[in-house]
Design a binder for these strands. Structure first.
Ligand code: ZN
Ligand code: ZN
Ligand code: ZN
Ligand code: ZN
Lengths: 136, 136
DNA sequence: CTTGACTTTGAAGTTACTTCAAGGTTGATC
DNA sequence: GATCAACCTTGAAGTAACTTCAAAGTCAAG
């Protein structure tokens, strides 16, 4: 049995996060000692680590809950899992494309200034102040 | 003079956002009519549009406030502007790299499943449940 | 038995808004 | 003049996923 700090160290997240996951029902309520402390065993910590890995992949709390439910039904077909992964991958790819557009615009702005003049003549601020900027 | 909805339409953001920007002091308090309504003129709307363009580039509210302050000092050198742009570009690029790592991992997970078996044998959940997964 | 490191709780802070409720104003129509 | 839709006002609460805080209880070592 491990205290919350020990579980946190093993799972690789702060103790506050574990309490949070319990509060929002992503994880079941932990067993308690007579002192009121939460105690975890290995299986609990593995489940927590699963959650952390999924979160690191960018899944929302709700999506992680879905993954956990699926993992708890070993006899169902795995389409649901595959769909969740595919959906997440698509949303990550979409976000990447958005950010690449952003980066391109920022680089374009950067090229509007050589850094050697007062703000009044700065091409960056001029571009940002330009109504037609959106159309770029 | 324009009402808040007219200003919003011209600047390209909801009226609620304008009120919000005023509340957090990103924009100065608007002039008020005797009815209590906010009224805007062209210069106000241009400033608002500037803010919206900067926000679309991913700048935080604080960074936009910095940009506005810089734009209000036309005689200062423009280093500050250039630095803000560069910083923002770097953080966008960093985020893109993080998301690309994420996407690669998700694709790797996807390749662990052909979609034709029960969850118990799903390579995706097996990978997510694997303690050594982090090391990949 | 004191000290320091741990634990508990509920509440508030974070970011950038959006949504809501309850009520006042405006302008057009009947 | 009444009515109606479409505006406007405010403060508060909701969103996502935590983190931080304060106040207080617990534990293990020396
Ligand atoms: Zn320049
Ligand atoms: Zn410049
Ligand atoms: Zn498969
Ligand atoms: Zn599968």
């Amino acid at each position: 049995m491990f205290t919350i700090a020990q579980a946190a160290r093993r799972a690789g997240c702060p103790a506050s996060t574990i309490r949070y996951y319990e509060r929002v029902r992503l994880l079941p309520s932990a067993r308690r000692g007579t002192n009121g402390y939460r105690y975890y065993e290995v299986a609990d910590i593995e489940r927590l680590a699963f959650v952390n890995r999924a979160r690191q992949l960018g899944f929302s709390i709700d999506a992680v809950a879905d993954l956990l439910r699926l993992a708890d039904h070993p006899h169902s077909p795995c389409d649901g899992v595959d769909t969740l992964i595919a959906t997440q991958l698509h949303s990550v790819e979409k976000r990447i494309r958005q950010l690449q557009t952003l980066a391109a615009r920022l680089r374009q702005l950067q090229s509007a200034c050589d850094g050697e003049h007062p703000i009044r003549e700065c091409g960056i601020l001029a571009a940002l102040s330009d109504t037609r900027w959106n159309e770029a």
